[in-house]
Nucleic acid binder design. Structure first.
Lengths: 193, 193
DNA sequence: CTGCTTTCTTAACTTAAGTGAACGAGTTAT
DNA sequence: ATAACTCGTTCACTTAAGTTAAGAAAGCAG
């Protein structure tokens, strides 16, 4: 399982055994059960997550019901806003499936960056890539209809539609569960007619 | 004008005169007229932008009409996706107003990072902050209606509504110009009744 | 296995956004 | 000065999403 992380990092920077050991020393590998809550609305936290196996989601509770805004699966990481702004969290994080994650905080990062500066280079590049990817996703979201967004998701992340409950997918697509259900039947009708 | 940049950077890292000189040496300060096109769909480019004064926008041409997805104003920066993925650009960038920008590319960054490693620290922190901010904005977009998004914009970026044409704002809010116009009168009616 | 809860679907109705067309105000060009 | 164009608004109509409610299907616990 640790090798998943090392392989991922190796795509950005070469990794020596010494560096791998330093990472293992940090004791960042943790397993969580489906439904486990990693961060609850209102809490303060400085933990960031990286998914080695499984799926976690970020959601808000608005007017009493959950709005899921993001899913993170294998080889995707997420640092909640509250880590950077220091305020109580507005969103919650929970496990969609049994998951194995790395859990880290800024002090661990600082330690590693000091010992091995190239880790900071990797994190910069990674942040820049994620930022651009998120811009592209946001642009696509703004410029397409819910139906188109669903079709895009079918193409780009078909796994998500299988492994995640529909009502969570709905808010991820910016609509209500009933609308997603209707939209799906609409698409099927079109393909028949 | 250069001081605007130095002041901005100083919020993240201390800046020596030597470092300021190194930045000026790069010859990154440029002025552009309203309407100037910085990047056109289909082009390849490795230029990133930072707005010292003015306003630029990113837009796509979809089915013949422009969809504006982002505005960048004073002390905001933008690196187009094509810089990182190396493919022809899918979006265009143009000046909404007469603007003064810094224009840089990855080789300039590399040069600066090598001479002054703390610039890389700044860029990492900046990228992480922008990434989080963008997540928050994306989440807010997904979880609210066009009307609510407009009201939020009125609160958080009232300047944009003044300095930018309505038809560009509309796609920024994920709707058509006619819908924005209607939505605005709807809000006025509510405040009267 | 049975009952309970959660999730998904369906339906009828309401509300808002999309579409296509037209008009007027303001701008630019000739 | 006038014609052409851009931009914002309005209108009538269509389409899709929100809302409320009810019921079917699937998963879980006793």
């Amino acid at each position: 399982m640790k090798n998943l992380l090392f392989d991922f990092i190796s795509k950005y920077i070469p990794l020596t055994e010494q560096e791998k050991d330093a990472l293992v020393e940090l004791d960042i590998f943790h397993a969580f059960k489906k439904g486990a809550v990693l961060l609850e609305e209102g809490q303060k936290s400085n933990k960031g997550y990286f998914v080695l196996k499984g799926c976690i989601r970020s959601f808000y509770v608005i007017d009493g019901d959950e709005k899921t805004t993001a899913f993170y699966t294998e080889m995707e990481g997420f640092t909640p806003p509250c880590v950077l702004n220091g305020k109580p969290s507005e969103n919650s994080i929970s496990c969609v499936e049994d998951s194995i994650l790395t859990v880290s905080d800024p002090s661990m990062e600082g330690e590693i960056f000091q010992k091995f500066p190239k880790f900071e280079t990797m994190c910069r590049i990674l942040s820049e890539e994620l930022l651009v990817q998120q811009q592209v996703d946001f642009d696509a979201f703004k410029t397409s209809s819910p139906e188109q967004r669903y079709l895009d998701l079918l193409e780009k992340r078909p796994d998500l539609i299988q492994r995640v409950p529909q009502y969570q997918l709905a808010s991820f697509l910016g609509i209500k569960p009933q609308s997603l259900s209707r939209l799906r039947t609409r698409i099927v009708e079109k393909n028949k007619g």
